[in-house]
Design a protein around this nucleic acid. Sequence first.
DNA 1: CTCCCGATAT
DNA 2: ATATCAGGAG
Length: 214
Amino acid sequence: MNKKQRMQEIFSTLDTLLPQTIQFLEQRDPFRFLISVILSAQTTDRIVNVVAKELFAKYPDKQTLAQASSEDVESIIYPTGYYRNKAKHIIACSEALLDCDLPDTMEELVKLPGVGRKTASCVLGDIYGKCAIIVDTHFSRVVNRLGLVDTKDPEKVEKQIAVLLDDPKQYRFSMTANLFGRTVCHAKKPECENCPLSSLCPSRDAFLKARSKG
DNA sequence: CTCCCGATAT
DNA sequence: ATATCAGGAG
């Protein structure tokens, strides 16, 4: 089996195994979704869910959020970490979007304060259904262990995956590979024993051997 | 490259 | 104690 065939097998397995829709917070409102993704940097989904709910209860939209005091926003989003930066970005984004809709291109999205390539990719994929490979730490770790790429350089990872997978499947794979990395293929202790991809994974033996040594 | 920064697992 | 987490700005 060549690498491209293996890629397809891995894609199918992850796709059938994981939930149909992987969406942050079930947020359909594009603006709220964007704020939720900004909040999610370097923290967990559980924290963001609690914090976002509280934030939107008090500030439902960009109009109210643009007028909020940074101190109050900071106090609400405190548990997510980096709260000063995030509060500043959230308020600035709200102001910037007052007179226009949320952009639907990478070029425009990354111009927003606090929005980089990863946040923009999430918006493009989840809100607009545009395909995009999101190379984060989880994604990079998973595809490296599976032997699909031979580098940790994010740009090279993106290019190498793009060659192996058709455009329409790329964003879907980003989602499933990311969730897989968070739930099964952990950084420290991957659960190789019950891994559905074990027969396709070149790293499995090494991990199991290291495990048995204790 | 450094800094921002709390929550969680080990 | 330490590493890690759907990052981004200066």
